[in-house]
Simulated assay, not measured.
Amino acid sequence: MQLAESSPTSFSVVPLVLKDDEQSHWLHFVSIDATAFEHWHAQHRQWLHPTESSYYESITSDVRRSSFLLGRIAAKSALTRQLGSMQPEAIEIRSGLFQAPIVCAAAANPAQVSIAHTRTMACALAFPATHPMGIDLEDILPDRSQAMERQCSESELAMVQALPSTVAHPWHVLWTSKEALSKAIGTGFTTPIRLFEVRELMGVSASPLEGRYAHFGQFGFKSWTIGQRVLSLAYPKSCHLQCGNDAPT
């Protein structure tokens, strides 16, 4: 998966395809560089639903304002592509009981969205509501690696120790894959993190890295190292996810 290093006011769009036994489904991944905040702030009412706009204008924390706005714009950009001709301000993204984003839009084919952000980037994945998915993104920071390692099980520690040295940032891969799954099932980390244990890592000599979960056999994940970030995407294991060089043109 390639994220375009374009101008800071533009966003990168990556189309993906999810194939199940019956048909293929388009997905849309969008990322926005956090340096573009002032550009998007100037036009936020063109993107936010009136309820979202009122909430955004009430936020006093600069960090929270940036993450909320850029996350919503990434999500709206992905959703307008997923849903067709809808205007972004006509789509409302509410927060569920466990803070998962809930898409409210008058569309024939319902879609949902997963949102992730760091201090340097916001991103979102729009997907059919019938196929639960989730993404997570983390900046690669050495001090975070130690905290992530402490959250791993004994079997995960042994699995990482057995990996070839060419596998980059394994602790970030495990952490983001777990958070992506927690978003796919709608609980976030309100569920004990040990339940999201990774059972297997595959394709260690290629990108993306792929994996399976110990307690959620219904899902698999793919992870990419993108510059100084790790992105993971959890999706139904019964489906085939086409992306990167395999994505249709």
Rank of each mutant, 00 (worst) to 15 (best):
G71W: 07
S95C: 13
A78Y: 14
T118W: 06
I73A: 11
M121A: 04
E138R: 02
T80W: 10
A111I: 04
F98V: 05
L79E: 09
S114Y: 01
V113W: 05
P88G: 05
S67I: 02
R81V: 07
F98E: 15
C123M: 06
L70D: 09
I91K: 08
H131G: 02
I140G: 10
E92Y: 11
I73G: 09
T60K: 08
A106H: 15
D136W: 03
V63I: 12
L70V: 03
V113T: 00
P132D: 14
V103I: 05
S77F: 12
A126V: 05
S77C: 15
A126E: 12
D136E: 11
S85W: 15
V113P: 01
F127R: 00
L137Y: 06
I73V: 13
S66Y: 10
D62H: 11
E89W: 13
I102D: 14
E138Q: 09
F127P: 03
C123I: 00
L69D: 09
G134H: 02
I140R: 09
Q82A: 13
R94K: 03
T130P: 05
R65M: 09
I135R: 01
L125M: 09
C123T: 00
R72S: 02
C104Y: 05
I135K: 01
T60F: 15
A100T: 00
T118K: 02
P88A: 07
I102L: 14
L137T: 01
Q87S: 13
P88E: 13
V113A: 00
T118H: 05
P101F: 05
S61C: 11
G96S: 11
A124I: 00
V103W: 14
A124M: 03
P101A: 04
E89P: 14
S114K: 00
D139W: 10
G84M: 08
G96V: 09
G96W: 12
I102F: 14
I135P: 04
F68N: 06
S66P: 03
E92F: 10
L97S: 08
M121E: 10
I73F: 13
S114D: 11
S66D: 10
A124P: 04
D139L: 14
A100I: 01
S85R: 11
A124T: 00
F98K: 02
S77A: 15
M133W: 07
N109E: 15
S95W: 12
N109S: 12
D139C: 13
Q112I: 03
A74K: 01
A116Q: 00
D62Y: 12
S77H: 15
A124H: 01
S95Y: 14
A75C: 07
I140C: 12
P110L: 06
R81N: 10
V63P: 12
S61G: 06
G134F: 06
A122K: 00
D136V: 03
L83M: 10
E138P: 10
H131V: 01
M121H: 02
R94W: 08
T130N: 15
M121G: 01
T120N: 14
R65Q: 10
Q99G: 09
L137V: 07
L79W: 07
P132W: 13
R119Y: 08
